[in-house]
């Protein structure tokens, strides 16, 4: 249980206060949940689409059900959690805006991480390569990608504005997974992925 977790997951974990309740939507193999349970005494629940992922999580003692962000967030009552977490999954949802709304209904706060489609490598590949971009954070062919609603960091900020959602924290990582602190225009160019903590206004 002491194995290091992915950098973006660590950033998310750092945002979660100890002893709180959290729902990890798209929890995969449960790495973030296990960290939150073991190191932050969080009452963590998970939701995962793949049955293999769910079974692995439950066999590790984590509370996880099969489900997906689009269909199943609606089941939960208002304010059921302190945090609802969605890591690297928003771009694969059918209705990202509705998913965000549900996350902020079910949770007091939402933490979202996603790949930045305005990263310079992506721009270069499309503009000069003339092909759909494939990068380390977007490793799919156009025809087999699960990512149907990609956005840039600025797109995401615009959506938050539009929804009247307060951005409490925004962390941008470059392609080496190092935190960068740049003005928004540059962050949207240099950042490969971003982690946002949101709150209903």
């Amino acid at each position: 249980m002491n194995a290091p977790i992915r950098v973006d997951l660590q950033l998310i974990a750092d945002m979660v206060e100890p002893g709180t309740r959290a729902l990890d939507v798209g929890c995969g193999d449960g790495a973030l949940m296990a960290y939150l349970v073991n190191f932050k005494r969080v009452d963590a629940r998970g939701m995962e689409l793949s049955q293999a992922g769910v079974n692995a999580c439950v066999a590790n003692g984590l509370s996880v059900i099969q489900g997906d962000a689009d269909a199943d967030l609606g089941d939960y009552p208002d304010d059921a959690f302190d945090y609802v977490i969605l890591s690297q999954t928003l771009q694969a949802t059918r209705e990202p805006r509705e998913v965000l709304r549900q996350m902020l209904r079910v949770g007091k706060r939402a933490i979202v991480s996603f790949p930045n489609f305005a990263h310079w490598q992506v721009r270069l590949r499309l503009v000069f390569g003339g092909r759909m971009p494939e990068t380390p954070s977007l490793p799919y062919k156009w025809y087999d990608t699960p990512n149907i609603h990609l956005c840039s960091i600025d797109d995401f900020r615009a959506l938050c504005r539009d929804m009247g959602v307060r951005i409490e924290r925004a962390i941008v990582l470059n392609s080496k997974s190092h935190r960068i602190q740049l003005p928004p225009l540059l962050a949207n160019l240099i950042g490969e992925q971003a982690v946002f903590m949101l709150k209903r206004d």
Binding site: V54, V58, I65, Y76
Partner: peptide, 18 residues
């Protein structure tokens, strides 16, 4: 049952076995 447990914000795990 899982949906109902979620609606009650209960602590629930659910596994479908092949």
């Amino acid at each position: 049952i899982v949906h109902a447990l979620n609606a009650a914000a209960a602590n629930v795990s659910f596994v479908e076995i092949e």
